[in-house]
């Protein structure tokens, strides 16, 4: 049915992006710039967004719904559950590595998608946006690292 029509489109003023973790440091004008490059995508509950081992072509921001990051076959429970405002899929874009886990919609999800080419274009051409996105990415990866260390046997013994 997708060939016959469309349901909705982004508002175009970047207000949806303002509440997200990755773009929250950007000003209104910068959000409008980013908004010109992103698009929306909807997934049903249980639908796979991307698989482990795939070549990453986009970064996703959760606009609504819940997304699980999992490693099926190795871990029964999801590694993380992402709620509106959080983002995922950035690692494949940063180091050109295959996707390290599977992303699956836990409930009907709307995602804001920034493609690899647009992500790279923004990072290369707009120093201000690039530095703010890079800072958020660094914070995000740092937080994830701390959580991993805390969950490891060494981290537990230290605490």
């Amino acid at each position: 049915m997708k060939w016959l029509g469309r349901k909705h489109e982004l508002a175009g003023d970047g207000h949806q992006l303002a509440s997200t973790e990755l773009f929250r440091d950007l000003g209104a004008r910068e959000l409008r710039i980013v908004d010109a490059f992103v698009q929306e995508r909807s997934f049903l509950a249980g639908e796979v967004i991307f698989d482990e081992g795939e070549e990453g072509q986009a970064l996703y921001v959760v606009a609504s719904g819940k997304v699980a990051i999992c490693l099926p076959g190795r871990f029964e429970t999801p590694l993380a559950e992402l709620t509106p405002g959080s983002f995922f899929g950035e690692l494949g874009l940063l180091d050109d590595s295959p996707r390290s886990a599977q992303a699956r919609a836990l409930e009907p999800v709307t995602l804001i998608v920034l493609s690899r080419s647009d992500f790279e274009r923004l990072m290369e051409s707009h120093a201000r946006i690039a530095s703010r996105i890079a800072l958020q990415l660094a914070r995000h990866i740092g937080r994830r690292l701390r959580q991993m260390v805390a969950a490891s046997p060494i981290g537990k013994s230290l605490s």
Partner: peptide, 9 residues
């Protein structure tokens, strides 16, 4: 959706 990322590429 399944072919979305490939289509982007």
């Amino acid at each position: 959706n399944a072919y979305f990322e490939r289509s982007l590429y």
